[in-house]
Design a protein around this nucleic acid. Structure first.
Lengths: 147, 147
DNA sequence: ACTAATCTTATTAGATTAATAGGAATTATA
DNA sequence: TATAATTCCTATTAATCTAATAAGATTAGT
């Protein structure tokens, strides 16, 4: 069904949460879990790859927790989704043409490549900073209309 | 992993095959299966939804087979992939916001909507006719360079 | 030492996907 | 009208992937 895994969905929310506390030191998984309604145990799976990708830093023990490794304006959704999914290719052969012996005369592979590039560009164009701005906006309009 | 199912991949190849025989009457699954290296049994699963979507017509019994319901220039990849996948939404809540109680203040849902629209536009822009043209081109350049 | 946190690995259950199999229904034609 | 060739339909299986939990090891401040 060409669906993002929950790793990506939760990963995005996790990173937005970290972004909204950027500059305030290490943030506890426990607190993120409460705010985002995701179990600590599940969050624990999301962080190692994000750390390996250089998107977050961590500290262990007391005063431990997580923080963004760089400013929210320097991290975009492509960074996050790509590390969570492993690849943005909608079809395996796009990353590894050797998988299919038809690659040489197959035209659909070119289309799937275009689709991947398009998805990549779209996600690249949205930074965590943008998302914080959007949230503020959404919150304000919902306050106006929902009270 | 945000992958297209093989239904979409095979569906695209099936439809290109039909497009390349457009106007020549009904085409046998047996022949498509041979040319595309897909089992007849599997192809049989792909066709009912394509037929329901008004993209192909079929005839049973002797002289039976399948044909495009309209010209290759009038069918695009969005038509095909959407009927094969059921939806192009990368996240369920995009099609059905009621699934998640956070929809009202969630910002990521807006991003996933944008992603869906982007994927839709990309696939819409490529018709079966375009793909036939590309194949011709690819074949010619491969003849030049691979002999 | 104690406590609170991240880190690591294993396991389970569930959902989805891919593919096959077998037979029913249909239709031109000999 | 029998036959052969085809689409159509339903069930089943096997494999893969995903989501989520659990339990303990490691680390670091107090």
């Amino acid at each position: 069904m060409m669906r993002l895994s929950t790793k990506s969905r939760y990963g995005a929310r996790l990173m937005i949460d970290l972004a909204s506390h950027y500059g305030k030191g290490n943030i506890l998984l426990k607190d993120i879990a409460r705010r985002q309604e995701i179990s600590v145990g599940y969050l624990e799976h999301l962080l190692p790859p994000l750390k390996a990708a250089g998107l977050v830093t961590s500290g262990r023990g007391a005063h431990g927790g997580y923080a963004l490794a760089k400013s929210p304006s320097k991290i975009n959704l492509k960074d996050i989704v790509e590390t969570m999914e492993g690849s943005l290719a909608p079809v395996r052969c796009v990353d590894n043409p050797a998988l299919c012996h038809r690659t040489n005369y197959c035209i659909t592979i070119d289309v799937w490549k275009e689709l991947k590039e398009n998805i990549t560009r779209t996600l690249e164009s949205i930074t965590l900073q943008d998302l914080l701005g959007r949230r503020k906006e959404k919150l304000e309009t919902s306050l106006i209309y929902n009270i």
